[in-house]
Design a protein around this nucleic acid. Structure first.
Lengths: 187, 187
DNA sequence: TCCCTCATGTAAAAGGTTACATGATTTA
DNA sequence: TAAATCATGTAACCTTTTACATGAGGGA
């Protein structure tokens, strides 16, 4: 049944929660999962075709009168099984690529004020993203006092949200610390 | 003078601290900068050739008797200037790709115990990496009571180290939280 | 009338990983 | 004798980004 790329699993992950068209998937790739695995439609459409060819998904054409017809994809049993075993299979820690950290490594060469402005701006952006996540969390907590069951897709989404909040909080804190050093240091 | 890729700037960042051969750079790409921008020798050698063609670096052949001769690269004025302006130029927040978070999104499908084991293992790895960073920090702090000057390459390296520690701490904490949820939840 | 949303694709280019290729010296 | 280190490269492949391409319907 040939191997599936990580992108392929990302698509299966979304389809495991319900039927979606390629266009729907492209939209879902913005939040919350897209913050940890982004893909654009030019990657999604060919990957769906590949998954279908290999028997992991199937599709039905849904005719629409006021808008273009669409292909609605759903998981096959093989697709669901592949996804299930992938979740707990061995995984190496990923190699991170963050250009801002790379720039920090050459901070001593750049203009002090410009550098401070850059880090302050990134601090702001990470804080804005954090607030977005916190609003989603508030919405979830508003619906029920306790966390969703561990076996539910809702808990899984909540877990990725927690990671998102932790990530943004840490990025913002680091940017702030760097900016403070740049602003407070000797002239 | 044509554009430089992020990888190119990564190489310039290292050369700004001193002359290095391609082989040296490949080794440096393991720590501390490599944790935020990795590259293997098959990328490094062609990129150095490109940077030289475009006038950002130059090289001298150093003959050695007991080991192979090497090409030692150094920055040109143009290379140093390009690096300097790059540090503070506008930058979009990067899109993150983390397969473990992607897997968490499908946690509800997988075996509970296997999932807990996976997250415990990643917790351990991130903690091990954190300890490695802390050892480097201890070494730096052992040399001098106060932080290195903001204008120094040492401060810049210290700043990336801080980011590394924050990153690993946050990853480990999240993995631990997920594992605890999986282990403590109802059967 | 112009732009946005819905909807699906292809193609070219850039970036990154893995494998191929060579060869001397040192260490276990 | 086998493996690791030093040293430099190329080639094939996979992934990702950006641009090209089309077309209907709705709202400002």
């Amino acid at each position: 049944m040939s191997t599936i790329s990580t992108l392929g699993y990302a698509l299966l992950s979304l389809l495991a929660r319900g039927e979606l068209s390629g266009y729907d998937i492209a939209r879902q790739m913005k939040a919350p999962i897209g913050y940890f695995w982004h893909a654009s439609h030019s990657q999604i459409y060919p990957e769906l075709a590949r998954l279908e060819r290999d028997g992991y998904v199937g599709h039905q054409v849904v005719e629409q009168h006021d808008r273009p017809d669409k292909k609605v994809y759903s998981l096959t049993d093989a697709g669901r099984e592949a996804l299930r075993t992938w979740v707990t299979s061995p995984l190496d820690v990923p190699s991170v690529r963050d250009e801002l950290v790379l720039r920090a490594f050459s901070l001593w060469l750049g203009d002090r004020r410009e550098a401070a402005a850059l880090f302050r701006e990134h601090e702001r952006r990470h804080e804005a993203q954090l607030e977005e996540y916190q609003a989603i969390e508030a919405h979830i907590k508003g619906q029920s006092a306790r966390l969703p069951s561990i076996d539910s897709p809702e808990f899984a989404a909540y877990a990725t949200l927690q990671r998102g909040m932790g990530y943004e909080r840490e990025c913002a804190a680091w940017c702030r610390w760097v900016a403070e050093q740049l602003e407070g240091g000797p002239v």
